[in-house]
Design a protein around this nucleic acid. Structure first.
Lengths: 143, 143
DNA sequence: TTCTCTGCAAACGCTTTGCACGGAT
DNA sequence: ATCCGTGCAAAGCGTTTGCAGAGAA
């Protein structure tokens, strides 16, 4: 958790506004996502949230994330095969994955080409842009 | 297979030039990839190539693709979780995945932002850009 | 009661690993 | 004999499914 900007109350209001029953599990999962910029995997969420909710199961996390995605509160990001990461930041932004430490960073700014609704006659619904390399922390550590 | 432009001989020369022992399996796998623009998954390759090589195993395909990636003959693309696709087209290009039929198309042209070697102080090694939507074939079919 | 939410356990599917056979040198 | 390539079988791991118990209305 990076900087605690959203309270449980904020999160509850948000869920209610989106027409989602704010159960404790859902509140805590969304709170975690909204206060995180690290694009956690299900396993990361599970290991962290288990401390606060010892009975929490991964099934509930999957169920909840599916619900949030269906209701468009979050998006899933695919950078690596074998793991999906989740992001509550819905603004169009790029991602950077460090090949050393594995962390995923948001890259602000509009890097997205100004293509219209179609490209090569295909209808575009989503655009995804990500980079891989060595993050500034790993770079300075090995320098 | 889309348009037969590379012969087995071409592929053999390419393997030798890259310092890879051109076994029959390796030849056929690379031939398939070089003559395909459909970014096949391992399963697609397996089902297709099994016809020509009945004893072929998926293990060999995985071994071979790992080798090709290590030697930088091909790249792996991650658009969906749960499946890796492979591409022998090493030029920087974008991809488009159809949400209906699931096919992945190459999108030619330089859609990549002209960022330098670093972004937000991170060292960039790879850039990936892909879109999702409805491809022209599915769009015309349902129109 | 009825409907929803939760979570254990098992199933699934793609990928990786262990290991042994076979061909080439 | 040695080395490399191949491929069967089993294990691994993230995710999904089946289903039953708990909780709210």
């Amino acid at each position: 958790m990076d900087e605690q900007s959203f309270s449980l109350g904020d999160v509850k209001d948000y869920l209610l506004q989106k027409g989602i029953n704010p159960s404790y599990q859902r509140l805590k999962i969304l709170e975690y996502l909204m206060n995180s910029t690290s694009h956690p995997t299900v396993d990361t969420m599970y290991r962290t949230l288990s401390k606060a909710i010892p009975t929490l199961s991964k099934t509930t996390i999957y169920n909840t994330l599916d619900l949030f995605m269906k209701k468009e509160l979050i998006t899933g990001l695919t950078i690596e095969e074998n793991e999906v990461r989740y992001d509550a930041n819905l603004s169009q932004h790029a991602h950077f994955k460090c090949l050393k430490c594995g962390r995923v960073f948001d890259i602000p700014g509009d890097f997205f080409p100004q293509i219209g609704n179609t490209v090569c006659e295909h209808i575009v619904k989503e655009k995804h842009f990500y980079m891989k390399g060595i993050c500034k922390y790993c770079a300075s550590r090995s320098a």
